[in-house]
């Protein structure tokens, strides 16, 4: 979204249409901010790309049950969930879980 201190959100192909066709969204951190949380990143995504964010989280800001989120390769369910720290320069991967028929 801007240059400078930011984190990168990798968007799955199924959701690229909700990110203007992009597979990668850059989310800027605040001035002097060295890290944020997954929740903080998605709050910023919600402000600019609400149709993307609402497919990752429900209206209670809970990450959807069949969506897997990784921070720098680690499943946030094994960390602190949506409160997992994302450092400046960090990468968030959003991936569809195994489900459906």
């Amino acid at each position: 979204m801007t240059d400078g201190m930011d984190v990168t959100l990798h968007v799955p192909g199924a959701l690229a249409g909700y990110a203007g066709g992009r597979r990668e969204v850059r989310v800027a951190l605040g001035a002097g901010e060295l890290a944020t949380t997954v929740s903080g990143v998605l709050d910023r995504v919600a402000a600019e790309l609400p149709a993307l964010e609402r497919r990752i989280r429900d209206e209670n800001a809970a990450i959807r049950r069949h969506v897997n989120v990784y921070v720098d390769g680690a499943d946030i369910r094994t960390l602190s969930g949506a409160q997992t720290t994302v450092p400046a320069g960090g990468v968030i991967d959003v991936i569809a879980a195994v489900s459906g028929g």
Binding site: L49, P50, A51, R54, D58, E59, N60
Partner: peptide, 18 residues
Amino acid sequence: SEPDHAPVAFPKDVETAL
């Protein structure tokens, strides 16, 4: 088409998800 924001969503205070 659809709006950017969820067309149907529970208000925050209800603490329920569609």
